[in-house]
């Protein structure tokens, strides 16, 4: 494959054909926020925070799953992009229940940091039934607090990429969607060991290393 010419945020770049807009931007020092993206895995395009403005495209496009092509003119932080990202984060915060200060290392929460970078503030939307799940401390390797989960599915995908694992899936539907282990039960320690991959990838405080007492 050859190279193509693209323009990202006014920078004229020559990048390898077939890479995504996100990869081209990152390789050239332009940062685009992501929540569901896992480097070198097939993109899923779930979270939408990576959207960018592509000239002559009717809609914003997800940069993590859109390959570059010749002549693209892309804006990664235009006012339109910023406004849309702000609403996307606001929607995610709406279903992200609970107090960040008490229960999570908020400074490690990518969503929390995005919310403060984009000055999102308290979400305007009301929910009929809050998405609340009691935190689960039974597993010695992973603490789960699914009220914080934004369903980015990274944990599902990294776990599935470990031979013989694949112990997480998405259960239920719509607003009730939830990451489930087994028959929607506590993470069993014989199945889940100490690899820590899901914790490393989780962009929120939903998965964390248990605090040793």
């Amino acid at each position: 494959m050859g190279n193509v010419n693209v323009n990202i945020d006014g920078k004229k770049l020559r990048v390898r054909e077939g890479v995504t807009i996100l990869e081209a931007a990152e390789a050239n020092g332009i940062k685009i926020p992501t929540l569901c993206h896992i480097k070198d895995q097939v993109p899923t395009g779930i979270c939408r925070v990576c959207v960018v403005e592509l000239e002559r495209s009717r809609t914003l496009v997800g940069s993590c799953h859109t390959p570059v092509s010749e002549g693209m003119v892309i804006h990664t932080h235009s006012p339109k992009v910023t406004a849309v990202r702000r609403v996307i984060v606001e929607l995610m915060l709406t279903a992200h229940t609970g107090d960040c200060v008490n229960d999570t290392n908020a400074e490690n929460c990518v969503l929390h940091n995005l919310a403060s970078d984009y000055e999102v503030g308290a979400p305007r939307f009301n929910v009929k039934v809050p998405r609340f799940y009691p935190a689960e401390d039974s597993n010695p390797y992973v603490r789960r607090n699914l009220s914080k989960c934004i369903l980015c599915r990274k944990c599902v995908r990294v776990c599935a990429s470990i031979p013989g694992k694949n112990i997480l899936s998405v259960g239920y539907r719509g607003f009730r969607s939830k990451i489930v282990a087994g028959f929607d039960e506590a993470l069993l320690s014989e199945k889940c060991r100490d690899c820590g991959k899901c914790i490393e990838h989780c962009p929120t405080g939903a998965l964390s290393a248990p605090v040793k007492v």
Binding site: S169, G171, Y172, R173, V180, A181, G182, F183, D184
Partner: peptide, 22 residues
Amino acid sequence: IMDTVAGRSGLPLNEIYGVATF
């Protein structure tokens, strides 16, 4: 039943449960 299907299909129980609850 889901355990039996899991054994036969090679899929983990969590995935079958995910589909069934959808």
